[in-house]
Computed example of a mutant assay.
Amino acid sequence: MPIHTHPLRTLIDSLRRDTFFLILLAGLAVLAIATRRPLGDYPALVDWPTIGALAGLLALTKGLEMSGAIGWLGHRLVGAMASERKAALSLVAASALLSTVLTNDVALFVVVPLTLGVCRIAALPATRLIVFEALAVNAGSALTPIGNPQNLFIWQQSQVPFAQFVLHMLPLVLPMMAALLALTALAFRSRPIAASAEHRRRQIDRRLLGVSLALYIPFLAAADMHHAGWAVLAVLATFLVLRARVLAQLDWGLLLVFVLMFIDLRLLAGLEPVRDAMHGFGLDQPKHLYLAGIAASQLVSNVPAAIALAEYSRDWRVIAYAVSVGGFGFMAGSLANLIALRMSGDRKAWIGFHAWSVPFLGFAAALGYALLFWLD
């Protein structure tokens, strides 16, 4: 008889192995002593609309993933690849497109395993492909408010309409994607590859697929109207009744990480020496804010950078550009980079990643600067 691990036990085991969570937890302990703020104040430090929107998106994307539809589409795509260059362009473009609606992390969870499978069959350069897919999800996810956690936070904080956010990011994302696709075409050869043999029939849970798709647009509309709390309750209740296993496999640990991130960063921002230092950077000036966002992303990744900068400025347009650009460069710039390199299984993948990502940061930073301050 198979032994089923209790979801709570699985969550605890996962958190015990999550280095980032443990760092945040240790930071909370230190900050609690330093600030002496009552524990009852901590829930007010969390941006609950952002957490609600993230929880709903995680549930809906998990539903799509568990329905089997994404895997089926991926394998259909594989069959159409005829050369190394076309395979690379297809996978990079697919990564970027998926990241606009499934978030950058989820896009990687879909595309990277598929890439590794294709590379085993066709002897493609797996590490280089995964590096370019990491760059692609950083670029593509910048387009929409739901493409990545930092955009989700900025969108909920700014309360701008979905379409307005997209229109603001479009001039940055289109040239970045054009440059990335051109770079992909240069980095991969045109040699023919054998068609993938993995076309085994895949079962699709049509009911789960239908429910996930049916809830997606109403959820986004509700979040756009600032009703993310009620919307996520409706989504979770629907899955609880129809497919409880979706909730059991949801990444609840990621939500806890974001809750801790809000508390830690806002406690830190409340310390007088930190506030004095941050005010000394002149973050009220858009150019300083833009450069600070890129630099902070390189040090702590772009999600914490967005949360921290929001404590000192409400200029969402500049912050959104800064943390989107900041996802490139060093691998710490975005959690998606770390996920992709970890999934590659290549301990030296970080070398190839930086060889492509650091120069791309220079291009993206100059592009964002020009769009914000020269062409505006």
Rank of each mutant, 00 (worst) to 15 (best):
358 V>C: 04
369 Y>M: 05
62 K>D: 02
291 L>T: 09
123 A>H: 15
183 L>K: 04
63 G>A: 04
321 Y>M: 06
296 A>R: 02
270 G>C: 11
165 F>R: 05
261 M>P: 06
357 S>K: 07
306 A>Y: 08
186 L>S: 10
173 V>P: 02
172 L>V: 12
51 I>Y: 04
276 D>Q: 14
102 L>G: 08
234 A>W: 05
78 V>C: 13
175 P>E: 04
116 L>H: 02
3 I>R: 12
64 L>R: 06
306 A>I: 03
361 L>T: 11
51 I>K: 06
296 A>F: 15
136 A>N: 08
342 R>W: 06
18 D>K: 06
59 A>T: 02
215 L>N: 07
38 P>D: 10
78 V>T: 12
209 L>H: 06
92 V>G: 11
33 I>D: 14
325 V>D: 02
288 H>D: 02
303 V>M: 07
182 A>G: 11
150 Q>D: 11
58 L>W: 01
224 D>M: 01
134 A>F: 10
254 L>E: 05
232 V>S: 01
327 G>E: 08
6 H>E: 09
172 L>A: 10
298 Q>P: 10
332 A>T: 15
75 H>Y: 14
208 L>W: 02
340 A>G: 12
246 V>L: 01
360 F>Q: 09
203 Q>L: 09
215 L>H: 04
364 A>R: 11
66 M>L: 15
78 V>D: 08
28 L>E: 06
46 V>C: 10
341 L>R: 10
138 N>S: 09
31 L>Y: 09
181 L>A: 14
218 P>E: 07
290 Y>A: 01
302 N>M: 13
287 K>G: 03
291 L>Q: 08
28 L>Q: 04
144 T>A: 11
209 L>Y: 09
43 P>K: 11
166 V>F: 00
4 H>F: 10
132 F>N: 10
42 Y>P: 05
334 S>H: 10
355 A>N: 04
288 H>W: 05
355 A>L: 14
240 L>E: 04
270 G>T: 14
117 G>C: 03
350 W>G: 09
44 A>W: 03
349 A>D: 13
265 L>R: 02
5 T>D: 01
149 P>S: 13
350 W>F: 15
247 L>E: 04
350 W>S: 15
162 F>I: 07
348 K>G: 06
355 A>K: 07
296 A>D: 00
191 R>E: 15
211 V>N: 00
4 H>S: 11
153 F>I: 14
83 S>Y: 01
70 I>T: 12
239 F>V: 01
344 S>T: 14
102 L>M: 13
360 F>V: 09
170 L>P: 03
107 A>W: 05
375 L>C: 03
151 N>P: 07
148 N>S: 10
151 N>G: 07
